[in-house]
Amino acid sequence: MAEHETATFETATFDTAIFDVDGTLVDTNYHHALAWFRAFRRHDLTIPAWRLHRAIGMGGDHVVPAVAGDDVEERLGEQLRADWADEFDALLGEIQPFDGVRELLDDVRRRGFTLVLASSGKAEHVDHYLSLFGGADLAEAWTTSADVEQTKPEPDLLQVALEKVAGRSAVLVGDSVWDFRAGARLGTPGYGLRTGGFSVDELREAGALEVFDSPAQLHERLDHTLLAKATG
């Protein structure tokens, strides 16, 4: 972290750690992109996979207009989301957590933070993700798509995550530019992981204070971040 960025928050207090789930704790981003690609192909629409990847991290309510336009959203949006769910369900058994996730979360909690897992995924998907690394035992609370009307890059999901644990201020960990654009709207600082496929520069420009290769690397360097010790 650059010295001037450290100074910006050195007098701030943080009592909550909000971790994004998809692409940050579990390796899902490319499965999401493939499921969206196949969903569009059901309607003879070919969206390049790279464009779909660039939208992953947004909530599903934003993906269709972002990659295919408002007209396609108006005509096919709800059906495309249903088709995506069918395609993604078929891939669910392939999804794995990233190495070191449980150790990272356990250590953050031991350092005094209230731990919240923030996802805009379907409840059954989030339940499955959490089962992969024991997330329900580690986190005080978690979110799903049912908790908000608008998803990232809108900040609603992060606000709800904080409210669920009556937190005062939070540090965010995420993998996509959409995480940090949402965080910026709430004034929430955070750290990026490259696990979602976004570059270091992109994550920094979106607002990440620092970017790490993986959950394990963030864990190794935790003492040099705002997650070193809860101060709230």
Rank of each mutant, 00 (worst) to 15 (best):
T195D: 06
V165L: 12
A141L: 11
P155R: 04
F180M: 09
F180V: 11
W178M: 06
Y191H: 10
G196S: 09
A141T: 06
E149H: 01
E140K: 14
S145E: 13
Q159A: 14
D175F: 12
S176Y: 01
D179S: 09
L157R: 02
D179Q: 11
D137R: 13
V148D: 00
E163F: 08
S169C: 10
K152I: 05
A170V: 13
T151S: 14
T188W: 01
L193G: 11
R185V: 10
D147V: 06
S169E: 11
V165M: 05
R194N: 01
T188Q: 01
A136C: 10
F180P: 14
T188G: 01
G196D: 08
A136S: 15
G174E: 02
V177L: 12
W178E: 02
R194G: 10
G187W: 02
D175E: 14
R181H: 13
E149R: 02
S176I: 02
R181L: 11
Y191R: 06
P155H: 07
V177Q: 13
K152M: 06
V171E: 03
R181Y: 06
A184L: 08
D147E: 13
E140R: 15
L158C: 08
D175T: 06
F180K: 04
G197P: 08
E149N: 03
G183N: 01
T195V: 08
A161Y: 01
G192L: 03
D156S: 12
Q150P: 04
R168E: 15
S145T: 01
L162T: 06
T143G: 11
G187H: 05
A166I: 00
Q150L: 10
G187K: 04
V173M: 13
T188R: 00
T151D: 04
S176T: 15
A141F: 02
G174T: 13
W178H: 15
Q159F: 07
G183I: 09
A146D: 14
L158T: 06
L138P: 14
A182M: 13
A166H: 14
V171I: 15
A166G: 15
G190R: 06
P189C: 07
L186S: 10
W178T: 00
K152P: 14
G197R: 01
G190Q: 08
T144I: 05
R194M: 12
E154C: 09
V160Y: 03
W142K: 07
A139V: 08
D179T: 12
L193Q: 06
L172S: 05
Q150N: 11
W178R: 01
S176A: 12
T144N: 03
A170G: 12
L186F: 09
Q159R: 15
V160S: 04
S145I: 05
